[in-house]
Design a protein around this nucleic acid. Structure first.
Lengths: 150, 150
DNA sequence: TGCTTGCCTAGAGTGCACTCGAACTCTCTA
DNA sequence: TAGAGAGTTCGAGTGCACTCTAGGCAAGCA
């Protein structure tokens, strides 16, 4: 039995900080190099491709994936969209628009503007909550026997 | 057949803005009043209770739920935690601590502080993405035939 | 030559946070 | 007195975003 693909282990997490630079600029990154760089699992990278979230990845003569710097740029951007809560379906839609060519600029713009609004709204929500959290934390940290609060 | 519980329809969304005040201060809110107030579905409210996220809701003599202002406060707070991405399991843990009494203050504090860190980190991520979005939006909005970018 | 490692595919499985369904009760109004 | 409407329970179902499994292939090393 071969080594199991135990992606995202404690070890890989520890390596995360060091991993954020691109291994070498050879434009032929293996999937495991991309795993180290992005923090995504190999499964997830293959899945992204299957669902059309990646703009067709090159293959080696034996059929293995070889990612370019361009692919890494794209994954960086997708990662940002993901962290900010864009649904995968929307990201796929955006990827489709990119593949379709320049005439989709207006729709891409629209999509990004809508998401920007979303992100702004979310920042506001987070800040509001931060205030409530500060208030409650002061309450708990300050007086031990405060009146029963939740 | 009686009217189906079609919660979160377009109509209820339209009413949302008006709904944010408490119907009347009688401390005996029905589940549909709480639905209107919180924007959560009746199913979700019952589910919150089942999983221990609500501090035991009163009942009418016929067994129907009657929510207090205190319950609404709690739901407000839970809503904030939810919007900021706290997992339901963590919220349940917090609710348990509240039920257990004052001696759980330190652990509650710890939980909130950890979540505050999380929220702060998320705000940073969102702001980073905002910059990227601004950049790309400028690109798309500015020149129509810009060099092929994603 | 056989073993290990790293990768491949298609499809099934998982965990989370709801969301729905079916069958029922109670109250109110026509 | 019938039926509409609001509520009840508990278990099953849904959608999303992965995540894993099984079985297989190619290259490198002992």
């Amino acid at each position: 039995m071969t080594v199991v693909e135990t992606e995202r282990s404690a070890v890989t997490s520890c390596l995360e900080v060091a991993a954020r630079q691109r291994p070498r600029g050879h434009d032929r990154y293996t999937i495991s190099e991309v795993v180290a760089y992005t923090g995504l699992s190999a499964h997830t990278l293959r899945w992204y491709e299957r669902i059309g979230l990646m703009p067709h990845v090159d293959r080696s003569h034996t059929g293995q994936r070889r990612y370019t710097d361009r692919d890494l740029d794209w994954l960086d951007f997708v990662g940002k969209l993901r962290l900010t809560g864009m649904p995968v379906a929307d990201m796929v839609r955006y990827a489709e628009l990119v593949r379709e060519g320049d005439h989709t600029y207006p729709e891409r713009l629209e999509l990004l503007v809508a998401h920007r609004e979303d992100v702004r709204r979310r920042i506001t929500e987070l800040r509001d909550t931060l205030e409530v959290l500060d208030y409650k934390i002061d309450l708990y940290a300050g007086a031990k026997p405060a009146p029963e609060r939740h």
